[in-house]
Design a protein around this nucleic acid. Structure first.
Length: 742
RNA sequence: GCGCCCGUAGCUCAGUUGGAUAGAGCAACGGUUUCCUAAACCGUAGGUCGCAGGUUCGAAUCCUGCCGGGCGCGCCA
């Protein structure tokens, strides 16, 4: 409920500690040095060691240099400028010119006392203020990106989990967040799914079951199979394909009626898709007449390994065939996949919903199209060609030039002196291809169109487009999202792609929004490795399915809880329902936390034992810390109620453990801001681990329920409550629910 | 060949963008329970931050060159 009598600035809010310190120092700097010092970065950091205080200011060393004064003298001048601060104790100058700052303990207690007592657990933000006005941005977070007709595997885990944290953190700061799931639902994918469905339809003529297709797939992917046997198998499959095609060359007799009635399930679609994929991979590069499939209807022949690409091109309007049924079937296949993905998102506890799906196919209207009469309807590539026509446009310190090369439409990125920014293996310039020589679109084409859609806005960013059709198509998509920041959570191997994509996008000028530029950021991450330090695979060499990974995590957590329950020393006992809940939250939380607590840039080694350990920087440890606090709370409520005396208690931070814990709680907003800027979820994990550690020390040294007096009891109870809330908020930003008991 | 990322304790990893004596967890050794959850806590030991130069008051961090590992490099996504 809004409280209209109180102006916004008087709302109790937990202000960023470090910015308060910075402001004080900045003010002192102007007093000490004069107006020249206005705007100088005060170089305030958390102290490297508790004995140096809480924060340190390193500005004297750098300023001493530029001013030609002794750093210690500059430090003294800054300290004099601070005067009697209400924020710090008397600062100390140390070493070459460090200014050590220790916050007044009263300041810590009053800051925490201002935090409103909790009203609604779900919307609790510990009084941390929201960004408003100019500061508030519209941010798109593009993550997860599964593919149609494929199962999600561990490779999707990191994008999904990291992207979700980024979306949550930025939304918590108060920005407008648009989550987008860039589903792989176009291009070759499309062709492969339709081919799979075609096999599913025609298999009856050979009397083959889905299992038979699986058998062929297994043989083709068997590394021990010799080349001759593989070729012979491929020839046999090619013959079957040819027979089936001859039976129904237009698709009108059998295939289209089949598609119209189709209700595909993911379980039947998947093996057929794998079959198509295995056939094409095995046949690639083999030149043999017997691997050519001839279509009597079109008079054309296609190599076995090129079939899906041909089908995809055909269905994308490159031929004059009607393809309504295929598109409808494609849509159904997509739906079947999404049901499975949604299940995983629910189990994983991520925010992505069906409404966040904005896959590759969504941007197709912005791409060029070939009409039935062969006329080219221009699209985004034509627009780029116009804007970046030689001599091109400057952006990010390079020059982007769009021109045709070897029949393909390319964007070349060059340094100011004309040398290429990117090179291929022969040392020749490596362009970004945005249209293939056969006129088809690529990954980069969709991404360029995606940027246009995400960045343009009818009123906020009215991008001027030269191609009237592109303008119209954009309008049919609503005119664009008008983003201020677009974040791509995509694996590190695609770094080169984004290094070419972003400067190209900036060169078009679309990303200039008002007086600033839209931020395009690639949040790269390393691979998940097995204990053998190679990409995590099953023993048979397949990538591990996300679903089975999550199920195993819950199973392992359940066993762990079961073992703990048998311990006679334990004071808590859990009902079967509670055990199941603990197993779910601990198991899934462990998988997510293990991923998030690692610096995302590096590969990480997946280890069940480490992620489920109770000690160290793990989800179980963090959840245990929270459960311990809640246990105190429950017991306290029995004997000494958590009433107004506690909610309004003044905080007494006399013990070092109490003060350390209070300071840690107050650092939450700084941590959230750091994650929002640098997009590093492990900073938040580090913070929470530190906070939990501080609580453990407090727990061992400062008894709450047996506090020496009522005032200390109330103060410690309140500190426990604040700590629990900080942990709960932090974990919820990581997408991990907390447990009252475990 | 070129580009990107990485190399930190026996192992797995932090290190908030240049700060003081480089930190955790595991493994090893020692201690803590009539006391709010011992799934915990405290302590000890363990380092030429791959190597060699350079930049400066100050480098794990920035620059150069090597060595070792991973990934990427035109019509796939």
């Amino acid at each position: 409920m809004r409280c209209k009598s109180r102006p916004a600035e008087d709302q109790p809010s937990m202000q960023s500690l470090i910015s308060q310190v910075r402001n004080e120092i900045a003010r002192a700097l102007v007093i000490a040095i004069g107006e020249d010092a206005r705007g100088v970065d005060p170089l305030v950091k958390p102290a490297t060691d508790a004995k140096f205080g809480d924060y340190q200011c390193n500005v004297a060393m750098s300023l001493g240099k530029t001013l030609g004064r002794k750093p210690r003298d500059v430090a003294q001048a800054v300290v004099d400028g601070l005067g009697d601060s209400t924020l710090f104790e008397a600062p100390e100058i140390a070493g070459p010119g460090f200014i050590n700052l220790r916050l007044r303990t009263e300041r810590l207690s009053t800051s925490l006392e201002e935090v409103p007592s909790i009203a609604d657990v779900e919307s609790d933000r510990l009084g941390i203020s929201l960004v408003t006005g100019e500061e508030r941005r519209r941010v798109i977070v593009d993550y997860s990106s599964p593919n149609v007709a494929k199962e999600m595997h561990v490779g999707h885990l990191r994008s999904t989990v990291i992207g979700d944290v980024i979306a949550r953190v930025i939304a918590f700061q108060g920005h407008e967040v648009i989550r987008q799931n860039h589903l792989g639902d176009w291009g070759t994918q499309f062709g492969m799914v339709i081919l799979a469905l075609w096999h599913l339809c025609m298999r009856k003529h050979q009397g083959e079951s889905v299992e038979d297709f699986q058998g062929v797939t297994a043989k083709l992917t068997d590394p021990t199979l010799d080349a001759e046997a593989r070729l012979s198998l491929l020839k046999q499959r090619a013959r079957i394909h040819q027979d089936n095609l001859n039976r129904d060359p237009t698709g009108d007799v059998e295939f289209h009626p089949y598609l119209t009635a189709l209700e595909p399930s993911f379980e039947t679609l998947l093996p057929l898709y794998r079959y198509v994929s295995a056939i094409e991979k095995a046949a690639k590069g083999l030149s043999d007449e017997a691997l050519l499939i001839h279509n009597s209807e079109t008079g054309q022949s296609q190599h076995l390994s090129e079939l899906s690409r041909y089908v995809a091109a055909m269905l994308q309007g490159k031929t004059d065939r009607s393809n309504e049924q295929e598109r409808a079937a494609w849509f159904k296949a997509k739906e079947a996949t999404l049901v499975v993905c949604s299940g995983i998102y629910r189990q994983l506890g991520v925010l992505l919903e069906d409404g966040d799906i904005c896959g590759e196919s969504f941007y197709q209207p912005l791409l060029h199209e070939i009409e039935v009469n062969g006329e080219r309807l221009p699209g985004v590539v034509d627009e780029v060609k116009l804007i970046l026509a030689p001599p091109g446009k400057e952006a990010d310190g390079m020059r982007a030039v769009c021109r045709e090369d070897q029949g393909a439409i390319c964007v070349f990125l060059e340094k100011p002196d004309g040398t290429p920014c990117f090179k291929g293996p022969e040392g020749d310039a490596l362009p970004m291809l945005i249209e293939k020589s056969d006129g088809a679109s690529l990954y980069a084409t969709t991404d360029i169109a995606g940027i246009l859609y995400r960045v343009a806005h009818a009123t906020e960013n009215p991008v001027q487009l030269h191609i009237p059709r592109l303008r119209e198509q954009l309008a049919t998509l609503g005119g664009g999202l008008g983003a201020d920041r677009v974040i791509y959570v995509v694996g590190a191997p695609q770094k080169l792609h984004f290094q070419m994509l972003f400067p190209t996008a900036h060169a078009t000028g679309w990303t200039r929004k008002g007086d600033r530029s839209v931020q395009l950021e690639h949040v790269a991450f390393g691979s998940v490795l097995g204990e053998d330090r190679k990409m995590l695979k099953t023993r048979s060499g397949d990538s591990i399915k996300l679903k089975s990974l999550l199920d195993e995590a819950v199973d392992r957590a359940r066993n762990l809880v079961g073992d703990m329950q048998k311990d006679p020393n334990r004071t808590t006992d859990l009902s079967p329902e509670e055990v199941e809940n603990v197993a779910n939250i601990v198991g899934i939380g462990a998988v997510k936390y293990a991923d998030l607590c690692q610096n995302r840039n590096t590969d990480y080694v997946f280890s069940w034992d480490k992620m489920l350990a109770m000690q160290g920087n793990t989800a179980p440890y963090m959840l245990y810390a929270y459960a311990r606090i809640r246990s105190i709370y429950r017991r306290g409520a029995e004997s000494a109620p958590f009433d107004a005396d506690v909610r309004n208690a003044s905080l007494q931070l006399n013990e070092p453990a109490e003060r350390d814990l209070a300071l840690a709680v107050l650092r939450l907003p700084d941590t959230i801001d750091a994650v929002g800027e640098q997009l590093m979820p492990n900073y938040l994990c580090d913070y929470l681990y530190g906070l939990a550690g501080k609580f453990m020390v407090f727990y061992e040294n400062c008894s709450v329920l047996k506090a020496p007096d009522a005032a200390t009891y109330a103060s410690r109870m309140r500190l426990c409550d604040l700590t629990a809330r900080a942990l709960r908020i932090g974990l919820s930003l990581l997408g991990i629910r907390t447990l009252e008991k475990m």
